[in-house]
């Protein structure tokens, strides 16, 4: 597969060199075969990446009676919306959806607020301890959640040295614990955004007598808006997709998120296989993410390579 890309590059390079040195000319038939193989490869890559989600959509739209046909049909002959109707009428699922929105939005809002303040200091102000803080923040982005699961569980239930209320099975517990992976990531990426801005901006404002905070709110933060959108999106996706904490710190639909709901989705009766409903629920919680990703794909690609952090 490696050679296909190399071929394309070689031919591109060869075109440029034609005036300098006569390149070896290949018979056109092999070129055509090469083109066909290349497109087959592209088709295969697309099939590999997209088919599972396509299959989830097809299954969610298939009548239960046809779902268990063998051999399977790859194109639904009739579309059946009943699984979506079932999921959207399911109180538990709707509650879970609301919990997920509240938790993800809450976490992202706090992470962006605290994170951009910290990133402003780390990116624009030279002070002692800056490097140490950056190291701490960076190592936090790679923190394994399971390493603190037990102690967080105790803290959430108020069983530690401070007298805190029992937050077990609340959305607040999830919002606060989700900061573990959203905040360091936000700080890390936003620091790079602030750092990349030209220094004259604030120098000029500071000479004019504006305070640091005014420079931050009125000049730098508006300029950092694209960065805020990117990090906010990535943090939102990470929070929306989180599973371990949501599973451990909740026990009913007062706080359960959609990820936990899907993992525990069952059929209308205990004899019914839940697959089609589960696929409908899966498609419903994934479509908003895919829409966001498609709309903001450029920003997301830039942010992914900037932070190189999955969450």
């Amino acid at each position: 597969m490696a050679s296909t890309a190399a071929t394309a590059r070689t031919t591109r390079a060869a075109k440029g060199l034609e005036t300098i040195a006569a390149p070896r000319r290949r018979p056109p038939i092999s070129k055509i075969v090469g083109r066909i193989l290349f497109w087959l490869l592209i088709l295969f890559i697309l099939f590999y990446t997209l088919f599972p989600f396509y299959w989830a959509i097809v299954s969610s739209l298939t009548f239960d009676s046809q779902l268990f046909n063998t051999p399977a049909s790859y194109w639904p002959s009739q579309i059946d919306w009943s699984h979506y109707a079932y999921v959207l009428r399911n109180d538990d699922f709707l509650k879970a959806l609301r919990n997920s929105v509240v938790v993800s939005v809450g976490t992202v809002a706090i992470a962006l607020l605290l994170g951009s303040l910290a990133a402003f200091a780390l990116g624009r102000i030279q002070f002692r301890g800056r490097t140490a803080i950056l190291y701490i923040i960076l190592s936090m982005t790679m923190f394994p959640g399971v390493a603190i699961l037990g102690s967080l569980f105790l803290m959430i239930r108020g069983e530690w040295f401070l007298h805190t209320p029992n937050l077990y099975n609340t959305r607040i517990a999830l919002i606060v614990t989700y900061l573990i992976f959203t905040l360091p990531f936000t700080i890390w990426v936003m620091t790079q955004f602030f750092k990349a801005m030209p220094g004259e901006l604030e120098e000029a404002a500071l000479v004019d007598g504006a305070g640091y905070m005014r420079v931050f709110w009125q000049i730098l933060l508006p300029l950092a808006a694209p960065g805020l959108v990117t990090t906010g999106l990535l943090a939102f996706i990470a929070a929306w997709n989180e599973f371990l904490f949501a599973l451990t710190f909740t026990n009913n639909y007062d706080a359960r998120t959609v990820q936990v709901a899907i993992s525990q989705f069952s059929g209308r009766t205990q004899y019914e296989l839940p697959y089609a409903n589960r696929m409908a629920a899966s498609v419903l919680v994934t479509l908003p993410l895919i829409a966001l990703v498609l709309i903001f794909q450029r920003k997301i690609l830039a942010g992914l390579t900037a932070g190189a952090v999955k969450g």
Binding site: P52, F53, N241, Q259, R278, V285, L289, V293
Partner: peptide, 13 residues
């Protein structure tokens, strides 16, 4: 697309 799909969803799929 696969990157954006939640792990729980991809596991159930």
């Amino acid at each position: 697309v696969p990157w954006a799909i939640p792990t729980v969803v991809s596991a159930s799929m």
